[in-house]
Structure formats: C-alpha cells, structure tokens
Design a protein around this nucleic acid. Sequence first.
DNA 1: AGCACGCCGACT
DNA 2: GTCGGCGTGCTC
Length: 761
Amino acid sequence: MKCRLNGAEAMSNPLSIIIEVAVPLPLDSTFHYRVPASLARQAELGRRVLVPFGKRKVTAYVLGHAATSEHQLVDILDVLDEQPLFTPQELKFYRWAAAYYLHPLGEILKAALPAGINQQSGRKGAAVTPGTAPAELLTGGQRIKTETVYRLTPGATVERSPRGKAALLLDHFRTGGEYSATELRRLFADCTAPLRRLAELGLVHSRQREVYRDPFKDVIFDRDAPLPLNPEQSAALHQISDAMAAGRFQPFLLFGVTGSGKTEVYLQAIAQLLPLGKTALVLVPEIALTPQLVNRFKRRFDCGIAVLHSGLSTGERYDEWRRIRRGEVSIVIGARSAIFAPLERLGIIVVDEEHEGSYKQNEGFRYNARDLALVRGKMAHACVVLGSATPQVTTWHAAHAGQVTVLPLPHRVNGQPLPRAEIIDMRQRRGELIMPPLAAALTDNLAAGGQSLLFLNRRGFATWLTCAECGQVLRCPNCAVTLTYHQRRNRHCCHYCDYSIPAPSVCPACNGPVTHFGIGTEQVEARLRELFPAARIDRMDRDTTSGKGSHSRILQRVAERQTDILIGTQMVAKGHDFPGITLVGILSVESTLNIPDFRSAERTFQLITQLMGRAGRGSEPGKVMVQSLNPEHYALTFSCGSEIDGFYRCEVDFRREAGYPPFAFLAALYLTGTAGEAVEREARLAADKLLAVRRRAGTRLEILGPAPAPLAKLRGRFRWQILLKSRNRTELHHLLVDFRSAYLAPAGIRLQIDVDPADLM
DNA sequence: AGCACGCCGACT
DNA sequence: GTCGGCGTGCTC
C-alpha cells in the first residue's frame, strides 16, 4: 500500500495517539488527527474536539482511536467536552443509520444531539458569564440555568440571636437543606430583608445551584393507580413481560382498535421494568399528543420522566437531554427525534400509532423513527412494541410472516361495539356537497342534541374535473396528480409542473358529461349554514387555526357542546377525542384516494378507520357516513364494514402483484436547485447514469421517474425525484452506494437520497 | 458546507 | 492594467 512519508513518521512515533473523528459536514469519510500528550487522556470516544479542517476550525466527534493513518496528521486543538456525549453502543447505532440511510455520520451525530449543545455562533460571544455558572458537566452551547440557594453555615454563631422573621428563617435552615428565595417566599412570604441579615451575620451562605428548565413545572399531577385489565390486555402484557424478563429483543404489534386500552398496556409493561433498573422510550407521532400522554405517565410513575420534541425551547430540550444523559430519567416520551434519546439500559421502546407518516423525517437526515426503533431495540436487547389500530401494511405482513408477534386487542374497554360506516354514492347527484342521506342524518342528530363532525381533506377551494359516467378524474400526464381548476384562467393546472389544459366541456375519456367537482371547507360551511340556519357551526382547518391558541379554543367549544357541527381537515382526524360526537361524515374520500401513491388505499383505510373510532358516546356507537365517487373501492368497503383483516389481505395481494413494499424496496433520489431547467437536465442525466450503473451491476432495478415535485414546500427551490424500486434490498443499497460515490453534483444542485420513502408523490 | 485556487469580462 | 464572476476540488 502507498504509505507516504508522513504516515511512516506517524507510525515511527508510537507514543502519539491517533483518533478517528467525524465532522458535521456532508462528507462520507471520517478523518484522523493526532492528539497532543496534554489532551491525550481527554480525547475519548463520544467527546467533541476542535480540529483544524482545511483553512478553518470545526468541531468534530471522536469515534475512537486509530492505529495508524496514511495521511499527513495534524494535532487537534482542543477537547470541548468534559464527558462523552454518546456511548460506544450509541455510536454503533448511529454508524448503522449512516450506512443504511447513506448519510454522513457527522451530520447524524449533530442531528441526534440537542441543538443547545452546539456553540451558538456569533453575537456577544457564547461565553458563559464567569462566576455565575458552576463547572459544567457538558460544556459549550446553551447557558446552563442556575438559581441562588441558601443554607446554614455550619458552626457559625453570633452574640445576639436574630428575632422575628429572621429567627423563623434560621429555625427553618436548622432543619437542614438548601432553599431558594422562591421557596422561602412561599413559606414565609416576603423575607428578603431578614434573609439578607442572616447572610450578613454569616449564619447562612448562598451558592449557585443548577436548575433544569422544566416544561411541566407548573403542572400538578394527581396520582392514579393501574386500571384492571381485560383478558386480551393481560395476555398482551404477559407476552411483553416474558420478553422483558428474558432481556431479549422482540418486536410486537399491539393491534388494538381505538379505545382498546393500548396505553394501559404500555404503562403496566413499563411499571414492571422500572424495578429492574431498566428504562423506557415512548414515541408518539405528534407533539400535540405528548401532553395527554405525559399526563398519564406522570400520574402513574414517580420516576424521572423526560419529554423531547421540537416544541420545546432550545434550553428546555438541552436540559431534558442532560437529565437523560446523566441517568436521572427512566422514561422518555417524545416525537420522532426522541429515538436518539441518550437512555441507557433500555428495556422497552413503544412506538404508538406506528403507521403515522410523521415518524419519517423528510429533510436532511431522512430517517424513519419507527424503523430505527426496531434497530435500536435489537441492539439494546429491548422489546419494541408497535401500537396501532391500523398498522402499516408492511407491519401487518411481517406479523403474518411471524417476524413480529401480534398482540390483538379486538375489544373496546367500554364494551362499545365497533361502528359500521355507510357509503354514499355521490355519482348520482354531482355538485352536491352534502348528499340527502347525510343531510337527513345531520337533521336527526341535531334534533337529538348530538354533535356532528364533517371531515374534508385539505385544500381550500380546490376544484377538479370529474366525469359523471366513468368517474374519471382529470390528471396531469407528467405527474399523475389531479389537475386543479383555476377559475380565473379557465384552465386545469398541475400544481407540480407547469402543465395545463383549457377546461374541457366533455370527458376526454368517454365524452360523458363533466362536472367541476371539489369542495373546500369554506364552501361546506356556507352550504351548511343554508341547510341548517339554526345550527352552531364551526370550522377547524389551517385557516382558522393560524392564530395562537385558536386550535384549543375551537376544541374547547366542541367539548363544552357549544358547537353542533364541526367541519375539519386532517387535523381533526387524529389526536383529540371528541366524546360528544355521534355522527361523522366524510364529505369526499376521493382527495385521499386519488393521491398517486401506492399507499393511497392504505391511507384511506387508516383515515376512515380512525374516524370511525372517534365516533360514539358512552355505550352508543356513532354513525359514520362516507361520501364517495368510487363507492366500490376495496379500501372503502373493507374499512366501512370494519373488516380489518379483509383489507390487509386484499392490499397485500395488490402489493405482491404490483411489486410494492413489502415485496419490493424503494428509494428516491432528490435533486434540488434554484434553476428549474438545470435541475431537470441534471435529473435526466442522473437517471441515465443510474441506468448505466444498473446494467453494469446486473441488478433488476426499476427506475420510475424523474418526476417533478411540489415547489411551494421548497420555498422557490425546484426538486426532481428519481424513484428506484428493487426486489432486493442489498442490490438496491449497493447501487445507491456505487452511484453516490461516482456522482458529482454540479454547482447549485444538491443530491439527497431517501431510502424507503414514505411519500412517493 | 466552506474556502481556496483559477482563469475570463468591465472598471478606477 | 486589476477587481470579481463562480466552476471545481479538497479538507486528516
């Protein structure tokens, strides 16, 4: 091997330590540095170091020691942490993720650590004011918050004992312990003056104590006790306990209908784990769902519970992270990024609502927390519980293939039967927003004093063209998305690319009569006010919830029964329970079903099933009505008939036939840039290069695309996507690795790789 | 990602 | 004659 002079030089000095580091830059390789003797003991795995990198200085993460290096070695400048930020086990996990997602390790490490730990750039120097902060355990970045606490000075005496309030305070201090001014004020009202006197007399002294920014500091939690379990819950708990007791990795699917008591199973499983000194990680799909879950956990457990999600302030997140790293926490609850929580001795990872797409990160390091949970669980010998009423098709298939243990919870804890839904054929009366059967049901429900929820999938005033005869929808020939009607131009336009056609008067496919179809929440609201002038109608969508607190205000009105009919988009489908809702209407399921994604049927099934689960009050099941232009679609018939397994069997057959997951693996390459034509040209070039690599490798890879993607999301940046599909994961992976190492993105164009993307739009 | 070097157009 | 455009190449 070509070992340069400097390599030999490095080897000739056996005393110099060489470390391997990763830098948080889009670079695949790791780098080697020499450690001066003065820093030798500190430059250990998991700590950050400051290194010269080209002409600049960067922070780097120490991955471990290296025996030798072929390169000209340079000394590190400094060690930035007093303690490692990650353990060797965690590094192993991050290394796996870097290889699997083809993402630079340094960037992954940076993404996994709390943002507050990074040195803030610029302004006033991030230097911690000297003297105020105690020696930090973890240096750099966010200020560590402190408070002043007072305690008795041992052995201090004075000639004249203080009187009055000062005497009371002194007695309090004599019981031992440290108290902050706030705590003392709570006990003795205003006591600043006597406290100052005690300090002046030398009877008490103060010091700075580190405090955590606690996102729940003002919330008081009532205790609660474990609830009795039904036989299915007990059976599920026993299977999980067995795996936990054996300390082995085992994946479970807690397959429970809405209201079947999944959370109680999580709680009792974790309760068994805590006495063993083990820890638990609970992932939830959305920030909005954390408070209610945290509430249940805090009421049940005395142990340290941390919350991690992007809704916390940088300081709060940094503090929560430090509490976890120091082992002060046994349970972590959080959104997808919580999969990187520095918990040790993990016993269980719960992924609640495992089918939710929000577990997928679609920017930068494109990981899926649900998938990483299984990997982390396996590495930690922990059990992984995937909970859902409507699991992913791939999860269901894995369960049937025996790779995941199914824990069925088919009954609701309140004994309420599963609702059935009625499908209303919309083809007969086009242009009608609310079909007669739904209007009649609304009238009845209003008369009975029940509340109704009308669900409509997003898009303010979107209108598209459908045919009354064949039910066909006008689509973009490039992107396969439905064309949106623009009244002003009287044309149908694609929102992805620039394609548009003049509005036709007959169906291009069968010459049948065409109707502008498509409803926005505002139109629905207007129509409802016509139909039910006396009803109290409210709307919940992105427009009405933009203001701070408006979200909860709308929900509050529903809870207080001040709303008779609530019209909502996506955001009402998940999360919050509406106990008073006895009628749910899905106004047009088409907007979900028509998304050109092989998962659209799965998504529709999940949406309907979730909404059905929300309907009903007490022991009364609610009524669900689904309006559709495609009433025979299997996603509708199975979900409306509550034939859960029927849907999955049908869907798995379709996936097998069409070659989609779980029978094929997917990846997407994204090329983005500010110049549209350049991006398109490059995407076509890249697709050709991929074809060439494929031919050389002899893999059976399918390339779908390139296709353009929405621009709005990307703030003026153009994005083209190349989809890759393969029956063989390894082949696909090798092809991506080969391609990426050979590909050089031209200036102004960025390449991103997404392995098994959740969105295939 | 930065930050260099490098080779071609309009300016004091 | 230089200042500056951003093309491409490297960072232990």
